[in-house]
């Protein structure tokens, strides 16, 4: 049995990931990530303009986006969703998470 202490990376709004990292860690392809960005289902924090000779821009994402991208990858695999279906599902999931966060905040403030 191997016991070791390991450090991790917080997937929060402060970390930043490249497109390549998002692709490698989420299981989505670069094209799928680009499509989700185009549909506003994923919002990059910065978009670097295409360098000479490159056909696409290279957005950078908040590390939080990886959580959504991984959910997108699972939904794509488990429900055979196409890019449009995936974008709709992600936007709804994101909305649900926002509402759950608001509900959690409201509950915390409410006296027991």
């Amino acid at each position: 049995m191997n016991i070791e202490i390991t450090e991790g990376l917080w997937l929060d709004e402060f970390g930043e990931l490249s497109l390549a990292e998002m692709e490698a860690w989420s299981g989505l392809t670069e094209a799928e990530l680009q499509q989700l960005v185009e549909c506003d289902a994923l919002s990059p924090v910065t978009t670097i303009e295409p360098a000479a000779g490159r056909s696409i821009s290279a957005p950078r994402f908040s590390a939080q986006c990886l959580v959504l991208a991984r959910a997108a990858s699972r939904l794509r695999d488990d429900f055979d969703l196409d890019a449009n279906g995936l974008a709709v599902a992600l936007r709804l999931l994101d909305r649900i998470r926002e509402l759950e966060a608001e509900l959690h905040h409201a509950r915390a403030q409410r006296p027991r």
């Binding site: 202490i5 390991t6 450090e7 991790g8 917080w10 997937l11 929060d12 966060a101 959690h104």
Partner: peptide, 14 residues
């Protein structure tokens, strides 16, 4: 796994 101080509900550590 070492969880640094400041973890909040629902946060994910990779």
């Amino acid at each position: 796994a070492r969880i640094a101080k400041g973890a909040a509900e629902g946060q994910r550590l990779r």
